[in-house]
Design a protein around this nucleic acid. Structure first.
Lengths: 111, 111
DNA sequence: ATACAATACCTCGGAGTACGAGGTATCGAT
DNA sequence: ATCGATACCTCGTACTCCGAGGTATTGTAT
């Protein structure tokens, strides 16, 4: 059961992270995990390792950039979205809207 | 880019197949592939192998049952949803509605 | 003072999914 | 007779999620 939900949620973390970085500016792993939970009304509930893994992938793709926070007591690795990231994000949002629309029609959700 | 979309669509095939079998009764692999494309307005576009793989998994889980069509010239393996499948489906639909709702709010889609 | 929860970072391995490539066979139309 | 559509399948690659495990700091309650 939960295996199906797991895979349905798959990929949405990438979407959420890019959107949050785009809207709210610089952030960091742990904070992003909390923000995804909040922003989704606890419908999405990523584990720490998922978020860190996703950020690593995004950085490898050049869609986010990271730097270690200076003057911060608690060691923190900050991330910000790149121009390339913004480009990919807008395309991604368009496609996800289309998927959400299709599901809405199919399942009869909303409105 | 498409890797993100791929994983966002991941799992939705299971959802679509169970729903289509529930609503339209007995069907078969190739037909289900076509119906998913139609029902999603071509937003979802699963490959044959994906559909066959998904059906195999669903059968292993006991959520669908299969039988070879008799009196059919072209060899066809039919599938139908089981009681257990229906149980899982209603739970799945509930959860997906919640995810769709969250995305709608987050992305500002629809209404 | 000290214990503990929360914050913050990370790796590894297992389980699951999508799908392209490749293979086989039948049916219907040109 | 040939070809495209229909119909089935397996295999390997790439990818994602996340539990388990590890480390260290900060703030709070006792």
């Amino acid at each position: 059961m939960s295996r199906f939900l797991r895979s349905i949620r798959a990929g949405l973390y990438t979407l959420m992270i890019l959107n949050i970085l785009d809207r709210e500016g610089v952030s960091y792993g742990y904070r992003l995990m909390v923000r995804i939970r909040e922003a989704s009304g606890w419908t999405l509930n990523p584990s720490e390792s998922t978020v860190y893994e996703t950020l690593k992938n995004l950085e490898e793709q050049g869609l986010v950039r990271s730097f270690w926070g200076e003057g911060v007591k608690h060691p923190r690795k900050f991330y910000e979205i790149t121009d390339e990231g913004r480009k990919v994000l807008s395309q991604l949002n368009r496609e996800v809207r289309s998927i959400v629309g299709a599901l809405q029609r199919f399942l009869g959700v909303g409105c």
